Simulated scan of single mutants.
Amino acid sequence: MRIQKKTEKKIINYYKDKKKVRILEYEIGLLERTIFDIDRCRTDENTKEIETRLEKSKRKLIEKKLQLNEIINENMGLEAIIVNLDREDKELFDLRYNRELGYQEIGRVLHISNSTISRRLNSILTTVNA
């Protein structure tokens, strides 16, 4: 049972990391556009100020890309397992660990019993643990 709790925590963190990835990708896009816009504003009078702003934005961009790569690398194994689950198991995982619904709410959404939910989740968790 203890191993299952550890695995569930890993899965919950995976879904949290997926949200972080979306935020980081958005922030990276903003920084890339900002760098482009700053660079276009360069004139002879403001070159030094522009260079300073460009360097600051480029450092932030590198930080964000490193964070993104770290999260992606940490979750590659679990991502591969989840991607290969069948549609019903993915939906069950999403409801339980991403949306954090309880068994009763999941049962109402999927029209299945609590025992079926438990059995399916345990089976998937065993696969994830392997």
Rank of each mutant, 00 (worst) to 15 (best):
M1F: 13
M1H: 09
M1I: 04
R2I: 15
I3E: 14
Q4N: 10
Q4T: 11
Q4A: 12
E8N: 02
K9N: 08
I11Y: 08
I11R: 06
I11F: 02
I12K: 13
I12V: 15
N13A: 06
N13C: 06
Y14G: 02
Y14D: 04
Y14N: 02
Y15E: 00
K18E: 06
V21D: 02
L24K: 04
E25D: 09
Y26E: 13
I28K: 02
G29W: 05
L31S: 04
E32Y: 01
F36S: 13
D37V: 04
C41S: 13
C41T: 10
C41A: 12
R42C: 08
R42D: 08
D44T: 12
E45N: 06
N46K: 09
N46Q: 09
T47C: 11
T47G: 02
K48G: 03
E49I: 12
I50G: 03
I50C: 05
T52L: 07
R53M: 10
L54T: 01
L54I: 11
L54Q: 03
E55M: 08
K56M: 10
K56I: 13
S57D: 01
S57R: 00
K58D: 05
K58M: 06
K60S: 02
L61P: 01
I62L: 11
E63V: 00
K65V: 00
L66D: 03
L66H: 05
Q67A: 10
Q67F: 04
L68W: 01
L68P: 00
E70K: 03
E70F: 05
I71H: 06
I72E: 04
I72P: 10
N73A: 07
E74W: 04
E74Q: 12
N75M: 05
N75T: 08
M76H: 05
M76F: 07
M76Y: 14
M76R: 14
G77F: 11
L78H: 04
A80S: 14
V83W: 14
V83Q: 13
N84R: 08
N84E: 14
R87A: 15
E88Y: 09
E88W: 14
D89C: 06
D89R: 13
K90D: 05
K90F: 02
K90P: 06
E91K: 15
E91H: 11
E91M: 14
E91D: 02
L92D: 08
L92Y: 06
L92H: 08
L92G: 07
F93K: 06
D94W: 13
D94L: 03
D94C: 04
L95I: 13
R96Y: 14
Y97W: 03
N98C: 10
N98L: 12
R99C: 05
R99K: 15
R99I: 04
E100P: 05
L101R: 07
L101H: 11
G102Q: 01
G102M: 03
G102E: 03
Y103P: 00
Q104N: 13
E105P: 00
I106N: 07
I106K: 08
I106S: 08
G107Q: 02
G107F: 07
V109S: 09
V109T: 12
L110W: 09
L110T: 04
L110S: 04
L110G: 07
S113G: 12
S115R: 14
S115Y: 09
S118H: 15
S118A: 10
R120T: 10
R120V: 11
L121N: 06
L121G: 05
N122A: 11
N122L: 07
S123Y: 15
T126V: 09
T126F: 12
T126L: 11
T127S: 10
N129Y: 08
N129G: 15
